[in-house]
Design a protein around this nucleic acid. Structure first.
Lengths: 110, 110
DNA sequence: ATCATTAATCGTAAAATTACAATAAATAAA
DNA sequence: TTTATTTATTGTAATTTTACGATTAATGAT
């Protein structure tokens, strides 16, 4: 198949999965880290920094942009990318809730 | 291609991606949530609860087990699964570091 | 010993992902 | 206006992912 049966899961479960998927490739992790590190970050900078072909970086940027995690601002022939703080915070809350599930009162069955 | 060029990324970036990928499917999110919710959770319970075929659930369990996020204990013909607290905590720290990157002193370029 | 139950494995089809060459589009520079 | 620069888009090959039917393996029950 290759496609998830999203209809049998809750919105929250699907949301976690969709956001997690965004981080499921090291190139997108690297892009986001770079955007956090620098104030001004053009597509070309990311190509140089990361070392994947330009169309590949553009493709990853598109995915992150579609999710709303980043924004792009056209400046002449260049495009300056940055983190979308609002969506990042929303995503963070959702992921934190998932990660912070209580381990305390759980005894290993194994 | 279909495969990531892991060799050009840092260990940390690859680790984030690998863990994130585990959460990149709602079925695995659902499995983990169920394991947090109940103390005793057999493979068959997950099949009933989630509503995917038994081989599909087994496949997802295998991935989570391979990553070390869960453990399985054979009890007769059944297998009881649970969260592996140690790996979960390690993963959580890695993911938290990534999620908590500082947004404060960042002004939108866009 | 035979049958039932439970879960893993195998095989496979459909679809998604990753990567990049080639090209197009848009703007800046000459 | 022609050329250069920068990024997006298109097309495509290799690979991975998802899902499940069929089967196997292992143990329990009769």
């Amino acid at each position: 198949m290759g496609l998830a049966k999203t209809e049998i899961f809750t919105d929250q479960q699907n949301k976690i999965a969709v956001f997690a998927k965004a981080f499921g490739h090291p190139a997108r992790v690297a892009i986001l880290q770079q955007l956090f590190k620098t104030d001004i970050c053009y597509c070309g900078n990311l190509v140089d920094e990361i070392g994947l072909a330009q169309p590949t970086i553009s493709q990853h940027l598109k995915e992150l942009k579609l999710l709303g995690l980043i924004k792009g601002n056209v400046e002449g022939t260049s495009v300056c990318y940055c983190i979308d703080a609002e969506t990042w915070t929303e995503m963070k809350n959702i992921m934190q809730d998932f990660l912070n599930q209580d381990l305390a009162n759980k005894e290993d069955c194994c």
